[in-house]
Simulated scan of single mutants.
Amino acid sequence: MKDTVKAVNHQQVRQLLHNKFVMVLGDSIQRSVYKDLVLLLQKEKYLSLRQLRSKGEMSFELDCLVEGGCLDTMTNGTEYREIRQFQSDHHLVRFYFVTRVFSQYMQSIMKDIRHGLKPDVIIVNSCVWDISRYNTVWTEDYKKNLHKFFSNLKEVLPEETLIIWNLTMPLGKCIRGGFLVPEVEYRGLQLRFDVIEANFYSGTLADAYDMDVLDLHFQFRFLLQHRTKDGVHWNAVAHRRITSILMQHIAQAWGVTLHEPQIPDAVVDSTFFGEDFSSDSLPRSYLSFTENPEPQPDRHENAENFRPAVHSQPFLPPLGRHYKQKPMKGFDYRPLHYLEHHDNYHHHHHQHPPPHDHFVMRNRPSRHHYAPYTHHRPAHHPHHGFY
Protein backbone atom coordinates (compact mmCIF):
# COMPACT_ATOMS: atom_id res chain seq x y z
CA MET A 1 0.00 0.00 0.00
CA LYS A 2 1.37 3.40 -0.95
CA ASP A 3 2.17 5.67 1.95
CA THR A 4 -0.03 8.79 1.76
CA VAL A 5 1.51 10.57 4.75
CA LYS A 6 3.15 13.77 3.51
CA ALA A 7 5.42 15.97 5.57
CA VAL A 8 3.95 19.26 6.71
CA ASN A 9 6.07 22.38 6.80
CA HIS A 10 6.43 25.35 9.10
CA GLN A 11 4.07 27.63 7.19
CA GLN A 12 1.32 25.02 6.88
CA VAL A 13 1.30 24.35 10.63
CA ARG A 14 1.35 28.04 11.53
CA GLN A 15 -1.58 28.76 9.24
CA LEU A 16 -3.62 25.72 10.28
CA LEU A 17 -3.22 26.46 14.00
CA HIS A 18 -3.54 30.24 13.70
CA ASN A 19 -5.38 31.55 16.79
CA LYS A 20 -5.78 28.01 18.08
CA PHE A 21 -5.18 26.47 21.50
CA VAL A 22 -3.74 22.93 21.40
CA MET A 23 -3.48 20.82 24.55
CA VAL A 24 -1.34 17.66 24.75
CA LEU A 25 -1.69 15.16 27.60
CA GLY A 26 0.33 12.02 28.22
CA ASP A 27 3.72 10.49 28.91
CA SER A 28 7.20 11.12 27.49
CA ILE A 29 6.09 10.16 23.95
CA GLN A 30 3.36 12.78 24.12
CA ARG A 31 5.87 15.28 25.48
CA SER A 32 7.93 14.77 22.31
CA VAL A 33 4.73 15.22 20.27
CA TYR A 34 4.32 18.58 22.03
CA LYS A 35 7.97 19.51 21.48
CA ASP A 36 7.93 18.73 17.77
CA LEU A 37 4.80 20.82 17.32
CA VAL A 38 6.29 23.75 19.24
CA LEU A 39 9.48 23.54 17.19
CA LEU A 40 7.69 23.35 13.84
CA LEU A 41 5.51 26.34 14.72
CA GLN A 42 8.70 28.42 14.87
CA LYS A 43 11.18 26.99 12.38
CA GLU A 44 11.84 24.34 9.76
CA LYS A 45 13.92 22.02 11.95
CA TYR A 46 13.80 18.56 13.48
CA LEU A 47 14.23 17.80 17.18
CA SER A 48 17.79 17.07 18.24
CA LEU A 49 18.71 14.00 20.27
CA ARG A 50 19.29 16.17 23.31
CA GLN A 51 15.86 17.79 22.99
CA LEU A 52 14.20 14.39 22.69
CA ARG A 53 15.94 13.09 25.80
CA SER A 54 15.48 16.15 28.01
CA LYS A 55 12.64 16.40 30.48
CA GLY A 56 11.57 19.00 32.97
CA GLU A 57 13.90 21.72 31.60
CA MET A 58 13.11 25.36 32.38
CA SER A 59 12.66 26.28 28.72
CA PHE A 60 12.45 24.54 25.37
CA GLU A 61 12.37 26.62 22.17
CA LEU A 62 10.91 29.68 23.93
CA ASP A 63 8.31 27.72 25.90
CA CYS A 64 8.22 27.82 29.69
CA LEU A 65 7.98 25.29 32.48
CA VAL A 66 4.86 26.18 34.43
CA GLU A 67 4.87 23.52 37.12
CA GLY A 68 6.86 20.45 38.17
CA GLY A 69 9.95 19.30 36.28
CA CYS A 70 13.17 20.88 37.59
CA LEU A 71 11.05 23.23 39.71
CA ASP A 72 10.17 20.20 41.81
CA THR A 73 11.62 16.74 42.43
CA MET A 74 12.91 15.02 39.30
CA THR A 75 11.79 11.42 39.69
CA ASN A 76 10.70 8.34 37.75
CA GLY A 77 7.80 7.80 40.13
CA THR A 78 4.11 8.00 39.37
CA GLU A 79 3.94 11.31 41.24
CA TYR A 80 6.17 13.14 38.71
CA ARG A 81 4.57 16.27 37.30
CA GLU A 82 5.47 18.53 34.39
CA ILE A 83 3.37 21.27 32.81
CA ARG A 84 4.79 23.20 29.85
CA GLN A 85 3.37 25.99 27.72
CA PHE A 86 4.33 27.76 24.51
CA GLN A 87 2.59 31.01 23.63
CA SER A 88 3.06 33.37 20.71
CA ASP A 89 0.88 36.15 19.31
CA HIS A 90 -1.35 33.65 17.51
CA HIS A 91 -0.58 30.18 18.96
CA LEU A 92 -0.99 28.50 22.31
CA VAL A 93 0.23 24.96 23.05
CA ARG A 94 0.16 23.37 26.50
CA PHE A 95 1.45 20.01 27.78
CA TYR A 96 0.58 18.03 30.90
CA PHE A 97 2.63 14.98 31.88
CA VAL A 98 0.31 12.30 33.24
CA THR A 99 0.99 8.76 34.44
CA ARG A 100 -2.61 7.59 34.75
CA VAL A 101 -5.58 8.23 32.51
CA PHE A 102 -7.80 9.12 35.47
CA SER A 103 -6.66 10.14 38.94
CA GLN A 104 -6.91 13.02 41.41
CA TYR A 105 -4.29 14.84 39.37
CA MET A 106 -6.29 14.33 36.18
CA GLN A 107 -9.30 15.78 37.97
CA SER A 108 -7.26 18.91 38.71
CA ILE A 109 -6.45 19.15 34.98
CA MET A 110 -10.17 18.86 34.25
CA LYS A 111 -10.70 21.74 36.66
CA ASP A 112 -8.19 23.82 34.68
CA ILE A 113 -10.15 23.09 31.50
CA ARG A 114 -13.52 23.79 33.10
CA HIS A 115 -12.54 27.20 34.49
CA GLY A 116 -9.97 28.28 31.92
CA LEU A 117 -9.62 28.81 28.19
CA LYS A 118 -11.17 25.95 26.25
CA PRO A 119 -8.77 24.11 23.91
CA ASP A 120 -9.58 23.77 20.23
CA VAL A 121 -7.69 20.48 20.00
CA ILE A 122 -6.77 17.92 22.66
CA ILE A 123 -4.19 15.25 21.77
CA VAL A 124 -4.06 12.62 24.49
CA ASN A 125 -2.74 9.16 25.34
CA SER A 126 -2.18 7.30 28.58
CA CYS A 127 -1.37 3.61 28.57
CA VAL A 128 2.12 2.30 29.36
CA TRP A 129 2.26 3.69 32.88
CA ASP A 130 -1.36 2.63 33.52
CA ILE A 131 -0.76 -1.02 32.66
CA SER A 132 2.68 -1.41 34.26
CA ARG A 133 2.95 0.64 37.45
CA TYR A 134 -0.31 0.37 39.34
CA ASN A 135 -1.56 -3.19 39.17
CA THR A 136 -0.29 -6.41 37.61
CA VAL A 137 -3.90 -7.26 36.69
CA TRP A 138 -4.54 -3.96 34.93
CA THR A 139 -7.48 -4.58 32.60
CA GLU A 140 -10.43 -3.75 34.88
CA ASP A 141 -8.83 -0.66 36.42
CA TYR A 142 -7.76 0.64 33.03
CA LYS A 143 -11.21 0.16 31.48
CA LYS A 144 -12.95 1.87 34.42
CA ASN A 145 -10.51 4.79 34.33
CA LEU A 146 -10.98 5.16 30.57
CA HIS A 147 -14.74 5.43 31.08
CA LYS A 148 -14.26 8.07 33.79
CA PHE A 149 -11.76 10.05 31.75
CA PHE A 150 -13.76 10.10 28.51
CA SER A 151 -17.05 10.94 30.22
CA ASN A 152 -15.47 13.75 32.28
CA LEU A 153 -13.68 15.13 29.25
CA LYS A 154 -16.90 15.31 27.26
CA GLU A 155 -18.56 17.16 30.14
CA VAL A 156 -15.96 19.94 30.43
CA LEU A 157 -15.28 20.54 26.73
CA PRO A 158 -17.45 22.38 24.21
CA GLU A 159 -18.78 20.35 21.30
CA GLU A 160 -16.44 22.13 18.89
CA THR A 161 -13.27 20.82 20.56
CA LEU A 162 -11.53 18.16 18.50
CA ILE A 163 -10.39 15.29 20.75
CA ILE A 164 -7.74 12.97 19.29
CA TRP A 165 -6.93 9.78 21.20
CA ASN A 166 -3.51 8.43 20.16
CA LEU A 167 -3.07 4.69 20.45
CA THR A 168 0.25 3.61 21.97
CA MET A 169 3.13 2.99 19.58
CA PRO A 170 4.79 -0.46 19.29
CA LEU A 171 7.15 -1.41 22.10
CA GLY A 172 10.33 -3.44 21.60
CA LYS A 173 11.07 -6.92 22.90
CA CYS A 174 13.61 -5.66 25.40
CA ILE A 175 12.66 -2.27 26.75
CA ARG A 176 14.23 0.27 29.08
CA GLY A 177 12.50 3.41 30.24
CA GLY A 178 11.86 5.69 33.18
CA PHE A 179 8.52 4.03 33.87
CA LEU A 180 10.13 0.56 34.06
CA VAL A 181 11.61 0.78 37.55
CA PRO A 182 13.40 -2.31 38.97
CA GLU A 183 10.26 -3.45 40.80
CA VAL A 184 8.41 -4.05 37.50
CA GLU A 185 11.30 -4.93 35.17
CA TYR A 186 10.06 -8.51 34.96
CA ARG A 187 7.02 -7.26 33.03
CA GLY A 188 9.11 -5.82 30.22
CA LEU A 189 8.80 -8.86 27.95
CA GLN A 190 5.00 -8.94 28.28
CA LEU A 191 4.30 -5.24 27.90
CA ARG A 192 4.41 -5.14 24.09
CA PHE A 193 1.53 -7.64 24.03
CA ASP A 194 -0.37 -5.85 26.82
CA VAL A 195 -0.15 -2.61 24.81
CA ILE A 196 -1.95 -4.26 21.88
CA GLU A 197 -4.79 -5.36 24.16
CA ALA A 198 -4.93 -1.97 25.88
CA ASN A 199 -5.05 -0.24 22.49
CA PHE A 200 -8.09 -2.28 21.55
CA TYR A 201 -9.91 -1.29 24.74
CA SER A 202 -9.04 2.41 24.58
CA GLY A 203 -9.53 2.77 20.82
CA THR A 204 -12.92 1.09 20.82
CA LEU A 205 -14.11 3.06 23.82
CA ALA A 206 -12.85 6.40 22.47
CA ASP A 207 -14.77 5.72 19.26
CA ALA A 208 -17.92 4.95 21.27
CA TYR A 209 -17.54 8.33 22.99
CA ASP A 210 -17.45 9.94 19.54
CA MET A 211 -13.76 10.86 19.74
CA ASP A 212 -11.20 10.60 16.96
CA VAL A 213 -8.80 7.65 17.17
CA LEU A 214 -5.32 7.79 15.68
CA ASP A 215 -3.77 4.32 15.51
CA LEU A 216 -0.06 5.05 15.86
CA HIS A 217 0.61 1.38 16.58
CA PHE A 218 -0.64 0.53 13.10
CA GLN A 219 1.06 3.50 11.47
CA PHE A 220 4.50 2.60 12.85
CA ARG A 221 4.39 -1.19 12.71
CA PHE A 222 6.79 -1.25 9.74
CA LEU A 223 8.86 1.77 10.80
CA LEU A 224 10.65 0.19 13.73
CA GLN A 225 14.01 1.43 12.45
CA HIS A 226 12.97 4.82 13.83
CA ARG A 227 12.52 3.45 17.37
CA THR A 228 15.42 4.21 19.69
CA LYS A 229 17.54 1.63 21.48
CA ASP A 230 15.47 1.69 24.66
CA GLY A 231 12.58 0.04 22.78
CA VAL A 232 10.12 2.72 23.91
CA HIS A 233 10.95 6.12 22.44
CA TRP A 234 11.25 7.27 18.82
CA ASN A 235 13.58 9.51 16.87
CA ALA A 236 13.02 12.90 15.26
CA VAL A 237 11.82 11.52 11.91
CA ALA A 238 9.12 9.45 13.64
CA HIS A 239 7.89 12.46 15.60
CA ARG A 240 7.73 14.63 12.51
CA ARG A 241 5.64 11.89 10.90
CA ILE A 242 3.29 11.95 13.92
CA THR A 243 2.98 15.73 13.61
CA SER A 244 2.22 15.39 9.91
CA ILE A 245 -0.51 12.80 10.51
CA LEU A 246 -2.05 14.94 13.24
CA MET A 247 -2.04 18.05 11.09
CA GLN A 248 -3.61 16.14 8.19
CA HIS A 249 -6.37 14.90 10.43
CA ILE A 250 -7.02 18.27 12.04
CA ALA A 251 -7.23 19.89 8.60
CA GLN A 252 -9.64 17.19 7.43
CA ALA A 253 -11.81 17.60 10.55
CA TRP A 254 -12.00 21.38 10.06
CA GLY A 255 -12.59 21.15 6.32
CA VAL A 256 -9.32 22.93 5.55
CA THR A 257 -7.08 22.04 2.59
CA LEU A 258 -3.37 21.89 3.28
CA HIS A 259 -1.48 22.39 0.06
CA GLU A 260 1.22 19.80 -0.50
CA PRO A 261 4.83 21.06 -0.29
CA GLN A 262 6.59 20.80 -3.63
CA ILE A 263 10.00 19.16 -3.35
CA PRO A 264 12.46 20.58 -5.91
CA ASP A 265 13.74 18.24 -8.62
CA ALA A 266 17.35 18.80 -7.62
CA VAL A 267 17.63 17.53 -4.05
CA VAL A 268 20.87 18.11 -2.18
CA ASP A 269 22.10 15.07 -0.26
CA SER A 270 22.95 15.38 3.42
CA THR A 271 24.32 13.08 6.08
CA PHE A 272 22.10 10.97 8.29
CA PHE A 273 23.72 10.28 11.64
CA GLY A 274 22.45 6.76 12.35
CA GLU A 275 19.58 5.53 14.47
CA ASP A 276 19.55 8.56 16.79
CA PHE A 277 19.97 12.14 15.63
CA SER A 278 22.83 14.17 17.05
CA SER A 279 22.18 17.26 14.88
CA ASP A 280 19.34 19.72 14.39
CA SER A 281 19.61 19.31 10.60
CA LEU A 282 18.21 16.47 8.49
CA PRO A 283 18.52 15.61 4.81
CA ARG A 284 15.82 17.00 2.56
CA SER A 285 14.93 13.49 1.47
CA TYR A 286 13.45 12.99 4.95
CA LEU A 287 10.73 15.51 4.16
CA SER A 288 9.00 12.54 2.47
CA PHE A 289 7.97 9.48 4.47
CA THR A 290 7.40 7.29 1.44
CA GLU A 291 10.87 5.79 1.67
CA ASN A 292 13.83 5.51 4.02
CA PRO A 293 16.97 6.48 2.09
CA GLU A 294 20.37 5.12 2.97
CA PRO A 295 23.02 7.41 4.54
CA GLN A 296 24.59 9.72 1.98
CA PRO A 297 28.13 11.13 1.70
CA ASP A 298 29.12 14.00 3.96
CA ARG A 299 27.33 17.15 2.97
CA HIS A 300 25.39 19.33 5.38
CA GLU A 301 22.62 21.82 4.84
CA ASN A 302 20.51 23.44 7.49
CA ALA A 303 16.84 22.52 7.08
CA GLU A 304 15.89 25.97 8.38
CA ASN A 305 16.99 27.50 5.06
CA PHE A 306 14.74 25.18 3.06
CA ARG A 307 11.29 26.61 2.25
CA PRO A 308 9.58 24.38 -0.32
CA ALA A 309 7.06 25.99 -2.64
CA VAL A 310 3.41 24.95 -2.57
CA HIS A 311 0.88 24.13 -5.24
CA SER A 312 -2.82 23.42 -5.32
CA GLN A 313 -2.88 19.61 -4.87
CA PRO A 314 -4.97 18.51 -1.88
CA PHE A 315 -3.42 17.01 1.22
CA LEU A 316 -4.46 13.33 1.25
CA PRO A 317 -5.65 11.65 4.46
CA PRO A 318 -3.65 8.63 5.70
CA LEU A 319 -5.04 5.18 5.02
CA GLY A 320 -5.12 2.22 7.36
CA ARG A 321 -7.74 0.31 9.27
CA HIS A 322 -10.46 1.32 11.66
CA TYR A 323 -11.50 -0.22 14.98
CA LYS A 324 -14.75 -1.98 14.23
CA GLN A 325 -14.04 -5.41 15.68
CA LYS A 326 -16.04 -7.56 18.04
CA PRO A 327 -15.32 -6.52 21.63
CA MET A 328 -13.22 -8.84 23.74
CA LYS A 329 -15.02 -11.05 26.20
CA GLY A 330 -16.25 -9.14 29.22
CA PHE A 331 -15.63 -5.72 27.68
CA ASP A 332 -18.55 -3.38 27.07
CA TYR A 333 -17.40 -0.83 24.54
CA ARG A 334 -20.32 1.53 25.15
CA PRO A 335 -19.93 4.32 27.74
CA LEU A 336 -21.45 3.74 31.15
CA HIS A 337 -23.62 6.86 30.84
CA TYR A 338 -24.03 6.99 27.11
CA LEU A 339 -25.95 10.04 25.95
CA GLU A 340 -29.43 9.15 24.81
CA HIS A 341 -29.30 11.23 21.64
CA HIS A 342 -26.33 9.14 20.40
CA ASP A 343 -28.12 5.80 20.68
CA ASN A 344 -29.88 5.87 17.32
CA TYR A 345 -26.72 6.99 15.54
CA HIS A 346 -24.57 4.21 16.98
CA HIS A 347 -27.24 1.58 16.39
CA HIS A 348 -27.35 2.51 12.73
CA HIS A 349 -23.55 2.95 12.58
CA HIS A 350 -22.80 -0.55 13.87
CA GLN A 351 -25.57 -2.21 11.86
CA HIS A 352 -24.51 -0.51 8.63
CA PRO A 353 -20.80 0.41 8.88
CA PRO A 354 -19.42 2.91 6.37
CA PRO A 355 -17.62 1.54 3.30
CA HIS A 356 -14.23 2.87 4.46
CA ASP A 357 -14.25 1.16 7.84
CA HIS A 358 -10.62 0.14 7.43
CA PHE A 359 -9.32 3.68 7.89
CA VAL A 360 -7.02 4.35 10.82
CA MET A 361 -8.96 7.39 11.91
CA ARG A 362 -12.67 7.92 12.13
CA ASN A 363 -14.07 9.71 9.10
CA ARG A 364 -16.22 12.40 10.64
CA PRO A 365 -18.13 15.25 9.01
CA SER A 366 -16.07 18.42 8.71
CA ARG A 367 -16.36 20.63 11.77
CA HIS A 368 -17.17 24.31 11.56
CA HIS A 369 -13.96 26.37 11.48
CA TYR A 370 -14.35 28.90 14.24
CA ALA A 371 -12.44 31.57 16.16
CA PRO A 372 -11.06 29.90 19.30
CA TYR A 373 -10.28 32.89 21.48
CA THR A 374 -13.91 33.91 21.77
CA HIS A 375 -14.31 31.51 24.71
CA HIS A 376 -14.96 33.19 28.03
CA ARG A 377 -11.81 34.03 29.98
CA PRO A 378 -12.33 33.85 33.74
CA ALA A 379 -11.41 36.82 35.88
CA HIS A 380 -9.17 34.62 38.02
CA HIS A 381 -6.32 32.32 37.15
CA PRO A 382 -7.20 28.63 36.75
CA HIS A 383 -6.08 25.95 39.18
CA HIS A 384 -2.46 25.73 38.01
CA GLY A 385 -2.01 29.50 37.87
CA PHE A 386 -1.72 30.32 34.17
CA TYR A 387 -3.87 30.99 31.14
Rank of each mutant, 00 (worst) to 15 (best):
L62A: 13
S88I: 04
E44Q: 13
I131N: 11
F273I: 07
M169S: 13
R334N: 09
I131T: 03
D343E: 11
N135L: 06
R321G: 12
F306D: 01
S132V: 01
R321N: 12
M110L: 15
D212I: 06
H381Q: 13
L336R: 12
H348E: 10
V33T: 04
H376T: 07
P261W: 00
K144F: 09
K118L: 09
P378Y: 13
L71S: 10
V213I: 10
Q15V: 05
C64P: 03
E291I: 09
K111M: 08
L40D: 07
G26K: 01
V66M: 15
G330A: 09
H348V: 09
H147C: 08
M211H: 07
K35F: 01
T139N: 09
I123W: 00
L336N: 08
E44M: 06
G172T: 02
Q87M: 07
R31F: 00
P378H: 15
E61M: 09
V267N: 04
V232S: 02
T257Q: 14
Y338P: 03
L39N: 02
S285H: 08
V121W: 05
Q262G: 05
D63W: 00
H384I: 14
V137C: 07
H217L: 06
M247S: 06
I175V: 12
E140P: 01
Y387A: 14
V124N: 03
Y186K: 03
F150C: 02
Q51Y: 08
N235L: 03
Q42N: 06
V38M: 01
S108Y: 05
H90A: 08
R187Y: 04
I250D: 03
L316N: 13
L49C: 14
Q252P: 07
F95Q: 05
T374G: 09
V156E: 03
T374C: 11
H259D: 09
M58A: 15
P261F: 00
K154D: 09
D130V: 00
E301V: 09
